[in-house]
Design a protein around this nucleic acid. Sequence first.
DNA 1: ACTGTAACAGTCTAAATAGACTAAACGCGC
DNA 2: GCGCGTTTAGTCTATTTAGACTGTTACAGT
Lengths: 190, 190
Amino acid sequence: MPRRTLDNPIVLAVLGLLLEQASHPYQMLAELRQRSDSHAAAITRGTLYNTVAAINEAGWVAVQGQQRAGNRPERTVYALTDAGREELVRRLDDQIRNPEREFTRFLGAVTYLGALGPDGAVEALTERAQRLRQRTAADEERLASARSAGAPRLYVIEAEYALCLARAETAWIDSVIDDIRTGALTWPTT
Amino acid sequence: MPRRTLDNPIVLAVLGLLLEQASHPYQMLAELRQRSDSHAAAITRGTLYNTVAAINEAGWVAVQGQQRAGNRPERTVYALTDAGREELVRRLDDQIRNPEREFTRFLGAVTYLGALGPDGAVEALTERAQRLRQRTAADEERLASARSAGAPRLYVIEAEYALCLARAETAWIDSVIDDIRTGALTWPTT
DNA sequence: ACTGTAACAGTCTAAATAGACTAAACGCGC
DNA sequence: GCGCGTTTAGTCTATTTAGACTGTTACAGT
């Protein structure tokens, strides 16, 4: 029972992967997991199979054939169609042109930062900043090693973007912590 | 048929709102819409009623009473319980401490930026940057007027955060556009 | 050679969500 | 004082999704 609307972020990821090479869902997932944690985190298997089936019905991919290794379940290999290629470009263009208001968990939490009290807020924010820094360092290393392995910059551009945002967030958190400490950001006495 | 897991961002928003005052779901939604577009965009009515029912079963809120204005449908007013207050702090703390890898639509699109070609990429990115700037300007204005109306900084802190990230994104896009133009970012010839 | 664990590939189902639907009451124009 | 669009408030259902389940094969240790 595949879906109708097909406006979810997985669609773009699937089309993008298939642009590079024909593949079966399980392999796509493995590929996504390997490339980027953020991609993979947002996808579960059930959803992926369902989405691929729907994309197939939409005519953006076609079954290229069945494969079988030993007596494992058969793998259905999909390839991008011309319509799929067009759709990919259309979506890409649209999603880049139109910024959406994203609602992240952190944004939701920051809204009620007050409820932690000044000390609790400083403590929690400090830990986040520290974790962010660790993660950023690890990501920078991965990026550097990808580069020195000869990966064209275009292929790692999304890592650059993610890093840029992470750095901005870290800097912001630092400044808030500072403002709480110096009294530039105070708790209203209610 | 309320849910079990209750790990979705609406929960925090509901608890946060009820910390300020008891309320009924419809009012919460109106409040959220008014305060912030990003909050509201992520919530539909069905989901909200469902979530509030589940939160109620979890014991984090309690029915305070029924209200009725004229012959309109009865409104069920919920108030935060002590357990709810604790849960709010727990979630707040957790969601601030642990940064998650967020997977935004733009991040997904940037990954396949290559498929647009250099010219297409520059065009799309340019439009995004322009829209971001417009939005940022509008948000800055709202923030300024809230401040001059005497709102404590703590109450508008999430707007500051959103602005900070939006600026960082804009700057990054500008730099990428520049790099494409100057040839610092080239398309591999495949 | 034999057992346990991890990887492979996919299906299935219960829970969660988006968005249509209901239905009364307000208010604005004329 | 009469239609007509909006706002108020909530319910209901058809999609969607997360995550458990199935069964197979590779592989490591003993």
